[in-house]
Design a protein around this nucleic acid. Structure first.
Lengths: 179, 179
DNA sequence: CGGGAACTTGATGCGCGTCAACTAGCGTGG
DNA sequence: CCACGCTAGTTGACGCGCATCAAGTTCCCG
């Protein structure tokens, strides 16, 4: 992401595809803190905070629209309902963060991975982008591991285990979890 | 917390003492998702969301002030800067959530506990309630464990280990971490 | 046909959970 | 006053879940 598209001056709307946000710890580990689907403004907090405490990254190919922050600020101050909608969206994101803290805290590998698959399925349903119980999850096993705090190797074994138990089925190009 | 003080109709300002928010998973594990010090409004999201996805609990004795949500709503809509201040506070909380996701994701026991102690110290400093490098942390080892996803037994061992290495010192009534 | 990224699978070891026993402190009631 | 019970903390033994290391297989793309 070059200087012209700097997310400190532009808000980014994800039009198609997927993106995620992550932090890098001092020892080089990457922790994915949120996943974003089409239709979401993926750096809402830039409207209110100057500093960025994490990084944005696209999952596979995606298209975005950039809106200058100054324009969005004018909009929300002129239209209180839009302002409120953005705030509520942020609150919902905070709720998802809390859920992730719980997910990474106590659960074992099967539960963590099942949770992230289910969350993805529910959000895909809400957007109407599932195909009859088939979901397109464009994350590598390493990325899943970075989201739930497991190594790619163990993610692999756990997915196999879920698969063997008939809880999920995977297709070639991507994965297709079913409840 | 009885019906009269219901946090679905009142906002709670922590005047003195400490409080935390937690979620209970289906298997009975408790995950603490945030800690609150004196001076903070501890259920800001109630201004915007009806549902409460987690629980509030006091750490030891504390005093609070209750403000009807309707009154706060009137205030923030009448005074945009106050509105904005609340939003920014929420964004900062979201940032702390992201940090906790990272903390619980990859770090080992020593790093997790050191992080929560340091976060507590920094926030205490910001409030000016430290006493020359001495901090009063009113959490039991079990609560620390519930915050970072470790058992009380292992928190105990890890604190001992940090103590033996001279990284922290503990006094009788509570703990006194030093950087 | 070569090379790299993602996935797969096995062997080994350690960090942390679990179980259990014990101590210390503190409030309550006899 | 001491007996009692409860909560928090402490320590040891043992086992499992997951990390780590390593080798290999696909599969895509040049």
């Amino acid at each position: 992401m070059n200087r012209d598209n700097d997310h400190s001056t532009q808000c980014i709307v994800l039009i198609s595809g997927f993106a995620f946000r992550h932090k890098i710890s001092k020892d080089g580990k990457r922790q994915i803190v949120s996943i974003h689907l089409a239709g979401e403004v993926i750096n809402l907090q830039s409207l209110f905070l100057e500093a960025m405490d994490h990084n944005l990254q696209a999952l596979a190919r995606c298209s975005v629209v950039l809106i200058p922050i100054s324009a969005l600020r004018s909009l929300i101050f002129a239209r209180p309902p839009i302002y409120a909608a953005f705030i509520i969206r942020s609150m919902v994101e905070a709720s998802i963060y809390r859920e992730w803290i719980l997910n990474n805290g106590w659960r074992d590998a099967r539960a963590r991975i099942a949770h992230i698959l289910c969350e993805f399925a529910v959000r895909s349903d809400a957007l109407g982008i599932n195909h009859g119980g088939i979901y397109n999850l464009p994350m590598t096993q390493e990325q899943i591991g970075d989201a739930v705090g497991l190594t790619a190797v163990h993610v692999n074994r756990t997915l196999k285990s879920l698969s063997n138990d008939g809880l999920i089925t995977q297709s070639a190009d991507c994965s297709a979890p079913t409840a």
